[in-house]
Simulated assay, not measured.
Amino acid sequence: MSVIDQVGTEPAAPAPPGRPAAKRGHPFGRYVLRRLGSGVLVIVLVAVTVFVVTRVASDPARTLAGPEATQEQYEAVRASLGLDQPLLTQFVDYVRDLAALDFGISYWQNVPVSGLIATFLPNTVLLVVVAILFAVLAGIPLGIAAALRPGSNADQATAAFALLGLSLPQFWLGAMLILLFAVTLGWLPTSGQGGIEHIILPAITLGLPSMGRIAQITRTTMIDELASQHILVARAKGLGGGYVVFRHALRNVMVPVTTIISFETVYALAGYSVIVETVFAWPGVGALAIQAIQRQDLTLVQGIVFVIAVVVVLWNLLTDLVYRAIDPRIELR
């Protein structure tokens, strides 16, 4: 299956004779509405799943009441949290609050969940953006350099570096970077948030595996593209090597490269950032979610998961629109 098939796009068919080309394909507005509809369905399924899991797998009232609480004290805590109500009543209240973007009060910190997410989410977004920028700015040039000379020392070095980035566990990599650059050399801080120096080690730790995958995809697709007929024709016309690579070949490989960049961004935001934020004590929603789970803070966990699901759905929609901007021949469907 091609990358275009995987992302839900396909090359536009030629317009029938006598029919204006502008009328090809589905209307843009209908496509956006259909994707938003499917995104809403995904968000609803995520919200329901989180509600069920958090109610079945934990008892925050017991945690808040403490191990020495009497049964009466425990029941009082359950009543204050609304957990003594029937499950259906709790779910109706939960859905109504989500519809109003009211995520409730954190059991753990006794402050609105929306305020906590608004405080910590920008930190995670900043970390992910810097990490993906590092991965793109390093991975694409490495992939191009390897593709220009397959089997060369540069190609083998790129493959080894990419494999190294993919193989190292991020918690171990982060610890080693702290040991080298923070403890031994004293160049960078060990943890926390502050100036630009605080984000360097977390961003490298988060972005290195993504850089390896981006370099691999760029190399593979660029090798195939450089062997294509239109590239051979361009070279036969005497066009310079750099012009052919960056003006013709690179634009055609950017669709699969954009796909892997989009996937890596989602993985970093929804998963890998949790590890990196924990290792470097970075104040993001990943570390906040881990602390909420440890303290069985149901409302905070539900709010974080819901917001992340919304961000991922919107990001996937934006990625599809970027495909069309890169190659107008792609028809969104």
Rank of each mutant, 00 (worst) to 15 (best):
M1P: 05
A12Q: 13
A21K: 12
R34N: 02
G37F: 08
S38Q: 14
G39D: 04
V42I: 13
T49V: 00
F51H: 04
F51Y: 05
V52K: 00
T54Y: 05
G66W: 14
P67D: 01
A69Q: 01
Y74K: 06
Y74N: 05
V77I: 04
A79N: 13
L81V: 02
D84Q: 11
A100W: 12
G104C: 05
V113F: 10
S114I: 00
G115A: 04
G115D: 14
F120A: 11
L126M: 08
F134W: 03
V136W: 07
I140M: 10
I144T: 13
A145P: 15
R149A: 05
A162W: 13
T190V: 08
G195Q: 09
E197R: 12
A203D: 09
I204A: 06
A227K: 15
H230G: 08
I231Y: 15
A236N: 12
R247M: 07
R247T: 09
V257E: 03
V257H: 11
E264T: 02
S273G: 07
A281N: 12
G286L: 01
F306T: 01
A309C: 03
A309Y: 03
W315T: 12
L317Q: 14
L318C: 09
T319G: 11
D327M: 00
E331F: 13
L332R: 11
